[in-house]
């Protein structure tokens, strides 16, 4: 029984870590621009697919991974420049449609650049399961957990200690005030898309060896990432991480103990229940509506 619980927990943590990386991407862009980027899942796809095709072309991981991340970041920057920037000031729902349009466009593009097949990626360090307390975990899952932790630490350093990070944070609190103290708000917006695309790509490369990758792998992951970001509270880094892990663990626990057919539905019921009592998510900013 406890070995079973352990297995569910380890699986939930791995799945949750990926959701957390996606949720962080949502939050970073939301903070800078108040845009929910529904194309976030496509960065996961681009990262994974680019890594697959680069390694297939014979590049070593040390080269292929940074290049794949850079490719996704470039797409992120282009998205900001050509789709979000020109629509500044549009309503929430208009921006949602723009980013969904972008995600359809990117998927169509990926279908042409690559193909419609599933692709495997070689695990970073072997495929031999590691036993922990009667449960097993793949070495790649440890990579997922480790890299996610490292990214969370790096981000909190970045936003807490560096000038650029603080500028981005300031912009999220009050765009006008940030502009007044000389922060280049447009630059912050631009960079936030690059950063969040890079995060998505890292997630995509990390899970490709476990789950395979294809041109449409981003759709469901994007939705789950959004759900995690909302559950944690939009714009909160802490919230994104907790939201992701809670969602991942809730899913695997429901699959294990309740019903695997309804595990996603159960996850959404949990989110709805949380929102009924905490309308801004677990760690979201409270506060009134601007009149």
């Amino acid at each position: 029984m406890s070995a079973q619980f352990m297995q569910y927990l380890l699986t939930g943590l791995t799945v949750g870590a990926i959701y957390a990386l996606l949720a962080l991407g949502f939050s970073i862009i939301f903070n800078a621009s108040h845009v929910i980027n529904f194309a976030q899942g496509e960065f996961v796809m681009i990262g994974g697919m680019a890594a697959v095709s680069l390694t297939a072309a014979g590049l070593p991981y040390l080269l292929a991974v940074p290049l794949a991340i850079a490719a996704a970041a470039l797409v992120g920057l282009a998205l900001e420049k050509f789709a979000v920037e020109p629509a500044r000031g549009a309503s929430v729902v208009t921006l949602i449609i723009i980013t969904i349009g972008a995600s359809i466009f990117l998927r169509g593009l990926a279908m042409l650049v690559w193909d419609k097949n599933l692709h495997p990626l070689k695990p970073f360090t072997g495929d031999t399961p590691i036993a922990i307390g009667g449960a097993t975990i793949l070495p790649q899952s440890l990579w997922v957990l480790g890299v996610t932790l490292a990214i969370v630490l790096a981000l909190s350093w970045f936003f807490g200690r560096t000038l650029l990070g603080k500028a981005m944070l300031a912009t999220s609190h009050n765009r006008l005030a940030a502009e007044l103290v000389g922060i280049n708000v447009r630059m912050v917006l631009f960079l936030s898309f690059g950063l969040s695309a890079a995060l998505g790509a890292i997630a995509g490369i990390l899970i490709a060896p476990i789950t395979l990758t294809s041109y449409d792998v981003g759709v469901m992951l994007g939705l789950k990432g959004f759900a995690a970001a909302i559950l944690g509270g939009l714009g909160s880094g802490m919230g994104a991480v907790v939201g992701g892990l809670v969602l991942g663990i809730a899913e695997t626990m429901s699959a294990g103990y309740l019903s695997s057919a309804y595990k996603d539905a159960i996850a959404f019921v949990i989110i709805l229940a949380v929102l009924f009592f905490m309308p801004s998510g677990l760690f979201g900013k409270r506060g009134g509506e601007r009149v």
Binding site: Q7, S260, D264
Partner: peptide, 20 residues
């Protein structure tokens, strides 16, 4: 009799249940 969803990334939970 277990199920998994579209786009699921991990089925160890369902398989663990079957194993047990």
């Amino acid at each position: 009799d277990e199920t998994y969803g579209a786009g699921d990334t991990d089925m160890t939970a369902q398989l663990t249940k079957i194993k047990n």
